[in-house]
């Protein structure tokens, strides 16, 4: 028996919004530790890794490890039927071929349930080694989303250049070129507004705008985003989900042919 409850459906809606543009379907691996998902986008350029810890749920029970392959378009249709404030419970029997989403209104007067067919998906799990990154940048998630949106008007690629002075995002194309520099904040009233840079070595890497923009769909989950970079390895874009877990996106760089 698997049962996981969150007191506000809005959290699950945001998690789904953060992955459904990159992935058509994905396997949710459930264990007593929580829910894990790892999947590559269709073109195998990026990887999504989601962790929702069992202690972050309002109720969590998982008697046997369970892998639930879900069509994210179908899941999205179902979650649209929930109000943000509804309690949402996901339930499945051991070895089941369906999962049930139950929504309960705050006043307990409306209860709905939606049963969704599960899919057998080819699981390909990639091992991600522990890495000491040359540069780790933390910045407001909204600011990162704004930069990715603005720069994607100028080119297909963004160059992220990080030194101890700051981080620079650049793009160029037919229109011309654009550069956005962010310095490390000296003092801020609110921690979530800070830009911080931990640098061992300066790094300059090029990434596809299209994927960066897709990652920023996770912005509503977190005030801050963390970018981890080293030369010639994938960028890690991490959003922490308060009290519940995190979503990490890995993006392969563009490299000289």
């Amino acid at each position: 028996m698997f049962e996981a409850r969150l007191n506000a459906a809005t959290t699950l809606k945001k998690v789904l919004d953060a992955i459904k543009d990159l992935l058509n379907e994905a396997t949710f691996d459930c264990s007593d530790a929580g829910i894990q998902l790892q999947a590559m986008d269709n073109s195998h350029v990026s990887l999504v890794s989601l962790t929702l810890r069992s202690d972050g749920f309002d109720k969590f029970r998982c008697d046997r490890n369970l892998s639930m392959g879900m069509n994210l378009g179908s899941m999205s249709k179902i979650l649209k039927c929930a109000n943000n404030e509804d309690t949402v419970t996901m339930k499945a029997q051991d070895n089941a071929d369906t999962v049930t989403f139950m929504f309960e209104s705050q006043n307990h007067e409306k209860v709905s349930d939606y049963e969704m067919k599960l899919m057998n998906l080819d699981q390909e799990h990639l091992g991600i080694p522990e890495t000491d990154y040359s540069c780790v940048v933390r910045m407001p998630a909204m600011e990162f989303a704004r930069i990715c949106r603005d720069l994607s008007q100028f080119g297909e690629s963004v160059i992220i250049c990080c030194t101890k002075e700051g981080v620079k995002f650049s793009a160029s194309g037919d229109v011309g070129s654009a550069n956005i520099k962010l310095a490390q904040t000296s003092s801020v009233d609110k921690e979530e507004e800070a830009v911080t840079i931990e640098m061992q070595e300066p790094v300059s890497l090029t990434f596809a705008c299209r994927y960066l923009n897709a990652f920023t769909k996770a912005t509503p989950l977190s005030n801050q985003v963390q970018l981890s970079m080293s030369a010639d390895v994938p960028l890690v874009v991490e959003y922490r989900i308060p009290d519940l877990g995190h979503i990490r996106y890995y993006l392969a760089p563009k490299i000289e042919e």
Binding site: M40, E124, H125, L126, G127, S157, A208, P234, A252, P253
Partner: peptide, 14 residues
């Protein structure tokens, strides 16, 4: 000329 690399070039199957 820049080439987009695949993520599987960096991380191997478990």
């Amino acid at each position: 000329n820049l080439e987009q690399k695949k993520i599987s070039m960096y991380y191997k199957n478990k």
